[in-house]
Structure formats: C-alpha cells, structure tokens
C-alpha cells in the first residue's frame, strides 16, 4: 500500500517498510535491505542481515549482542543531535525515551521536516535518555496503546505494589515477566531506586543484555543467574524472566512463584487473567493515550501518519483536532513486550 503525502512525496511505504526515496534508505525495515536506519534494538525493529545500518552507538551495541555477525555489515553510529547527510536528506537522531539507545528520526528534505517517532515514551526511565520533543511538519507516530483506556500510572507506584506483595508473601518468590530489552533493566533500576538491594535472579535469556547495560554504565546492582541457585535461596526473592518462561517447565525450579508481569497490556484485566498473571503491573515503555495525543499536538505537525498499533482511534483524535491524519499499515510488527 503506497501512500504519498502532498507534503512528503519523497516517502514511500514498501513491503520492506518505510522508504526514504532520495536517500535510498529504509527506516526499521522488516526484511534485510541494503541501507537501513534502525530506531532501536527490539527484534521487530532491528532485523538481521542489513548491508549498512545507521543507528545510535547503543542500538548498534545491542544489535551486536543480539544478532552477532548479522548486525549489519557496515555500522554507522550517530549520536543524538548529530546530523548525517544521506543523499540530499539530512538525518538526525533524537532520544525517544523507549529503551537504551532508542531514537526518533528527523528527516529534512526539500524544506520539509518529518519525524518518525519509532517507539517512544515520555515517562522518566532511569535506564535511557529522556524523550526530546522535535517540532516537525509531518509526524509519523507509533500507536501501540492508541486507545483512551490506556493510561500508564507512574512506574514507581507499580514497583511499590510489587514490593508490598513480596512483603506479604515472604515464603514465595516473585517471578516477574519482562521483555528482555528495556523493560527488564528498567524494572531492576526502579527496584534499586525503591531501596531493594537484595540480589535479583535472572533467567538465562536476560543475562547478556543486562551485562551490556552494565557495561554501558547503567547500574543494576547484584544480579545472579537462576541456574545453579537452590530453590531455598530464592524464597522471598525477585526473579526476572521473559514472559514465555512463566508458562514453561523452566519455572518449576522456583519456590511457589507468584507470577507478576510488567506491561502496558496489564491495564486490561481480562488480558492479565488470560496470561495467568497473579500480580499485573502496568509499566510500559510506550507512550500511553494521553502522551500520544499530547505529543501530536506539541510537535505542531500539520499532518500525522499513525502506525504500529491501534491506528483508528488516534487518527480520529487528530482529525478532530483539525490535523490531517491517516493510518499507515505496516506489516511485521509485534505487540509483545509492550
């Protein structure tokens, strides 16, 4: 489905993803391409096997950790605020506040400013640089939580609930389901900030990225692998694992685990119940409805394209505000870990 805006007819939606025509570069392509700009390291945005990748140094480091030699043959780091010319397009990355290294992409060409938000949030996060508002003419926004039922409470409050539940059930362990990149490290940092300094136990799949965050200067405190720890030692402890592990045989080694999950989807009870979650925590690395709306207005954009999620409600909102808006359907993006 190719849609051309009157304002930015140099952007094209191809099956690979959003193409910046005069630069010959795709943004977060879903298949391997010659030239890509990658907004952040999540698997549905950072695919393996690209020829050249432009991203922040942190995102490139995450890609190397996750993808090894598939992380892109030529890697071009760009720090926040540094402008890179690709063809006759000026490309600048700005912090998106989503996960470590996450970026919005500002494209300037033919007198028009376009911002691709990537995934973003505006709530504070101790593990990444805060979102920068970038004024633009065309704003391409994510919409993962693009319904007004999604309002994320302050994450600190959810962490307090987690610690209270743990205090009430000292003989059990809390098994906290988190996405491996971003949510995991953010929850650990929030727990530390709330004064929880006991060792935190990690599922094997989370270790490499925690190590990378630590290497990049994010303090996470004492982390131990679950493997090799006796069940007794984990009673009363907090254990982190990817969501799939909470339904897996892996969890049988834990002492009477109370399954918690930190995700924006936990706001809807039926979703939490379906996933067998005992302690749902509404902590998201995405903008909630209020932030999505506020950001659209604050960018001053005359036109908005909505992608990645529930586009319809956000298009309706923007239209009501007198902003031209349309849904931009792109395939290959997942909702998990939100």
């Amino acid at each position: 489905m190719a849609r051309r805006s009157r304002m930015a007819d140099w952007l094209d939606v191809r099956s690979e993803g959003l193409l910046v025509v005069p630069a010959g570069v795709y943004i977060d392509p879903v298949r391997s391409v010659d030239r890509a700009i990658v907004t952040h390291g999540h698997a549905d945005h950072a695919r393996p096997g690209h020829g050249a990748v432009l991203a922040t140094p942190e995102t490139l480091a995450i890609m190397r950790t996750r993808l090894g030699d598939q992380a892109g043959r030529h890697q071009q780091p760009a720090t926040y605020g540094e402008t890179v010319r690709l063809g006759n397009v000026a490309v600048t990355l700005f912090p998106a506040g989503h996960v470590l290294g996450s970026a919005q992409v500002l494209l300037e060409h033919a007198g028009t400013r376009v911002v691709v938000s990537g995934d973003y949030k505006r709530q504070a996060d101790p593990t990444c640089t805060s979102f920068d508002l970038v004024p633009c003419d065309l704003f391409i926004t994510e919409a993962t939580f693009g319904l007004p039922v999604f309002r994320h409470p302050p994450a600190e409050q959810e962490v307090t609930r987690l610690l209270a539940a743990r205090a009430l059930h000292r003989d059990r362990c809390v098994l906290l389901a988190v996405y491996g990149l971003g949510k995991c490290q953010r929850m650990i940092a929030l727990l530390r900030a709330a004064g929880h300094d006991a060792p935190i136990y990690l599922h094997g799949a989370l270790q490499a990225l925690c190590r990378l965050y630590t290497d990049l200067g994010i303090k996470l405190g004492p982390l131990h692998p679950v493997v090799g720890t006796t069940p007794d030692a984990m009673a009363g402890a907090i254990v982190l694992a990817p969501p799939s592990a909470t339904r897996d045989r892996w969890m049988r080694r834990l002492p009477d685990p109370m399954v918690a999950q930190a995700s924006g989807w936990m706001r809807v009870r039926q979703r939490a119940k379906q996933r067998g979650v005992e302690l749902p925590l509404v902590v998201s690395d995405h903008a909630d409805w209020d932030e999505l709306c506020r950001t659209i207005l604050e960018t001053g954009a005359e036109e908005v394209w909505v992608t990645h999620g529930r586009e319809e409600a956000l298009v309706h909102f923007a239209t009501q505000q007198g902003i031209r808006a349309q849904a931009l359907s792109m395939v290959g993006f997942e909702e998990d870990g939100a």
Binding site: L147, P148, V149, F150, R151, R267, V268, R269, Q270, R310, E312, A313, H316, F317, Q320
Partner: peptide
C-alpha cells in the same frame, strides 16, 4: 467521544472495566 468509547469497548469487552479505564 462516542467513537473513542466504542473502539475502546470493543477492545476491552466489559462495560464496567471500559468505563473505569476511560
């Protein structure tokens, strides 16, 4: 807004919960 309410109700499925959240 009724459009936003209906989209939300479709997604959540339960009236009390939709109203509580929205």
């Amino acid at each position: 807004d009724p459009v936003l309410f209906d989209l939300s109700y479709d997604f959540v499925g339960d009236l009390a919960e939709t109203v509580a959240l929205i």
